[in-house]
């Protein structure tokens, strides 16, 4: 199972360029579903026939990740870039990335500490002043390997560490994709649509058209969400806590969860003795926002795996939280006739 997670976080998939992760997901879900389609936006939809007619259930995790796009190649062979999705520019200096489908290695350079004025060290760097070095001496040399419009993602391997913790890039939302794929092994009485969306990080784009297409009655979104239970943050700003189980959202900035679904998720968790937590913030948004407002309205709710240091190359997740999320989603599927 963690092999699956490892495969998923190894695949590149910046928003708008999800090809590699899309192919992987298609391979992974083909044996678990009756039909796999890719829609016009590039969303992957795995259809699993149910035994009870009537309702359509949509499970949704986004397969895209935050990243970069090359905007210009300078005379000296350095690359200028734009960020895809929200990334704090202060984390960029001295990080590695992989560019384009070939995965050309590059680094975000910054002038050495010896060369900085004392005041400079106190100032946050801006993305505009940074550049990517791929070791090319001239524009011509760089152009042989990359071109403007090439996408890039953080280069960071998955590492097991500490007590049941895992560090990786792209846990938001490959962890959700992995949990969704695992959950597919459970039976769902209704027709099930396992949806892996594109372009969530640039404005919840893929989910909008996927929901329009599928016309679900209810949708459960599986997310990797912020977890700020770290030093310097007061408990009221934790949002979620690591190791306390999947986080169920009452609401966030994009949607208000359906109350029946929330009550049902809590009931199923308690019955199956799955630890869970209620997400303690109203921040952020996710695919639920567009799905809930699709056509005449859809029942939605969100289950999230707490991830520390989200949108960075070193996100951290607890494997127990991950496993419990899978269990909760499976419990949800098994009994969703009650909804």
């Amino acid at each position: 199972m963690s092999d699956l997670l490892k495969r998923l976080v190894s695949a590149k998939g910046a928003s708008g360029n999800e090809d590699e992760v899309r192919q992987l997901i298609i391979e992974e879900i083909t044996p678990l579903t009756h039909q796999v389609t890719v829609d016009r936006m590039g969303n992957v939809i795995g259809y699993k026939r149910g035994s009870v007619p009537g309702k359509k259930v949509m499970l949704c995790a986004h397969m895209d990740e935050v990243g970069f796009i090359i905007t210009r190649i300078e005379e000296n062979g350095m690359l200028k870039f734009g960020t895809i999705g929200s990334i704090d520019a202060r984390i960029l200096p001295s990080k590695r990335i992989r560019i384009g489908n070939e995965g050309i290695p590059g680094v975000f350079g910054i002038k050495a500490i010896h060369l900085q004025e004392p005041a400079e060290r106190e100032t946050a760097v801006k993305a505009k002043q940074l550049y990517i070095d791929i070791g090319a001496k001239t524009r011509e040399e760089a152009e042989r390997k990359v071109k403007p419009g090439d996408y890039a993602v953080f280069d960071s391997e998955m590492v097991y560490f500490g007590e049941g913790k895992v560090k990786s890039r792209a846990l938001d939302d490959r962890a959700g994709c992995a949990a969704l794929i695992e959950a597919l092994k459970a039976d769902c009485p209704f027709d099930l649509y396992a949806c892996f969306t594109v372009q969530e990080e640039v404005g919840i784009r893929g989910a909008k058209v996927a929901a329009y297409n599928i016309k679900p009655d209810m949708a459960l979104i599986i997310e990797g969400t912020t977890c700020s239970d770290v030093p310097g943050i007061e408990p009221q700003n934790f949002s979620t806590r690591m190791g306390m189980g999947p986080a169920i959202s009452i609401a966030d900035l994009s949607s208000y969860s359906n109350k029946k679904m929330v009550a049902y998720l809590i009931e199923r968790a308690e019955k199956a003795s799955i630890p869970y937590q209620i997400k303690e913030s109203l921040t952020g948004g996710n695919d639920a926002g567009e799905i809930q407002r699709s056509r005449g309205g859809v029942m939605t709710s969100v289950v999230s795996i707490p991830c520390r240091y989200i949108h960075s190359p070193s996100s951290v997740m607890d494997l127990e939280d991950f496993n419990n999320t899978i269990r909760l989603v499976q419990e949800f599927l098994k009994g969703c006739e009650a909804l």
Binding site: I69, R72, G82, P148, G149
Partner: peptide
């Protein structure tokens, strides 16, 4: 020419 648009 090419214009790169990272967002919307």
């Amino acid at each position: 020419l090419i214009e790169v648009e990272p967002g919307l």
